[in-house]
Amino acid sequence: MLVFEAVWIGTGHPATAWWTRLTHELASRPVDDVWVLTGAAIAAALGLWLIVLALTPGLRPQLPLRVPTDGHGRIRAVLDRKGAALILRDAALRVPGVSAARVRVRRRRVTVRADVRFRDTADVKDELTDAVRREERDQLALARTPRLAVHVHRSPT
Rank of each mutant, 00 (worst) to 15 (best):
G39D: 05
I87N: 02
M1W: 06
D32E: 10
G39N: 04
L55H: 04
P30Q: 09
A54G: 13
D115C: 10
R147Q: 12
A101P: 02
T38G: 07
D123Y: 00
T111P: 01
A40N: 02
M1H: 13
L53E: 07
D120A: 12
G10K: 13
L37D: 04
A41V: 13
A40M: 10
G10Y: 12
H153M: 05
L48Y: 06
E5L: 10
T23W: 04
L88A: 03
G73E: 03
A15W: 00
D126F: 00
W18P: 00
D115L: 12
R66L: 14
V95F: 02
L140T: 12
A84S: 08
H24N: 10
L22G: 01
L50S: 06
G97W: 01
P64W: 01
V124C: 00
A41R: 15
D33E: 11
R133N: 09
I9G: 03
G12C: 14
Q139D: 13
S155C: 09
A6S: 12
A45W: 12
V105T: 09
A6K: 13
H151A: 11
G73N: 06
S155V: 05
R144A: 13
F4W: 10
G39A: 15
D33L: 11
R104G: 07
E5Y: 03
V52I: 10
A141D: 15
L88M: 11
R60Y: 11
Q62K: 12
H151C: 03
R89L: 05
R104I: 05
V103F: 07
D90G: 15
A43F: 14
D120I: 01
R60I: 09
P156I: 08
V132K: 01
L65Y: 08
V67P: 06
A85E: 15
I51W: 04
R66W: 06
V116T: 05
